[in-house]
Amino acid sequence: MDLIVRKAVMADMERIREIAEITWGETYKGLIPEEIQSRFLEFAYSDRNLEWRIERTLFFVAMEGKKLVGFANASVRDDFAELMAIYVLPDSQRCGIGSMLLKVITEDLIGISKMIVAVEAGNKLGESFYHTKGFKVVEDCEEDFIGYKLKTRWMEQHLQK
């Protein structure tokens, strides 16, 4: 596998949106109603929001050859970072792409002591991935998500620098 991770650029927006839609559909089938998924994706992956995220946050894409197969996005806040997304196409999962994306994000976090991530309770693949990467559950809570109650599991990883 010829895998390259690079910073996202505006020309990647349409493919990023496609990957988000495909992976959300697979990951949250039976956990989050399709209507809620669609509303969230429409907002979070709008041109305006994607442009802002690409310009102002850590946003990387994974390329297999010339095909964009995944992405990761994190936001830095004071002394910690929030991992907002790691999405890899289902056919490309379990090949180390998510691990590589997480590694690149983590390496870019200078002076940051921890990273947090929110995982929907029941997203077994996500929870397992983060556990194997050293994340620990710090809180379970219920959050309003566009009028739908999510069971969110907050996890954190202390970064060694």
Rank of each mutant, 00 (worst) to 15 (best):
L58Y: 12
E51L: 05
I112C: 07
V61Y: 06
A74L: 05
E120M: 12
F80T: 02
L101H: 05
Y130K: 02
I54V: 07
P90Y: 07
R77T: 15
S92F: 12
V137F: 08
N49Q: 12
D108S: 15
F59N: 10
G111L: 10
K114V: 05
S113G: 10
T132E: 03
C95P: 00
D91E: 14
D78W: 14
V137W: 04
I54G: 08
R48E: 15
E55K: 15
S99H: 12
K124I: 12
S99L: 02
F135H: 03
M100Q: 03
S113V: 07
P90E: 07
K136L: 13
D79M: 09
A81P: 15
E120P: 06
W52S: 14
K66M: 01
L58M: 09
C95F: 00
T132Q: 11
V61T: 02
F129V: 02
E82T: 11
A72T: 00
S99N: 14
R48V: 07
R77K: 11
S113R: 07
L89T: 11
D108A: 13
V69T: 07
R56K: 14
I112G: 08
Y87R: 02
C141P: 00
F135Y: 13
V76S: 06
D91V: 05
D47G: 03
K124V: 14
V119A: 12
R94L: 01
G96C: 06
K103N: 13
D108W: 03
K66S: 10
W52H: 12
V88I: 00
S113M: 07
I54Q: 04
M115T: 09
G98T: 01
G96A: 01
S99K: 12
E51N: 11
Y45H: 12
E51Y: 08
C95E: 01
R53S: 14
L125Y: 11
E142L: 06
G70K: 06
A62D: 01
T132M: 14
S92K: 06
A81C: 12
L125N: 10
I86K: 09
L102K: 06
G96Y: 05
V137K: 14
N123G: 02
E82V: 13
E120F: 11
E82D: 15
E107K: 15
R48H: 11
I97A: 04
E143G: 08
A121Y: 13
A121W: 07
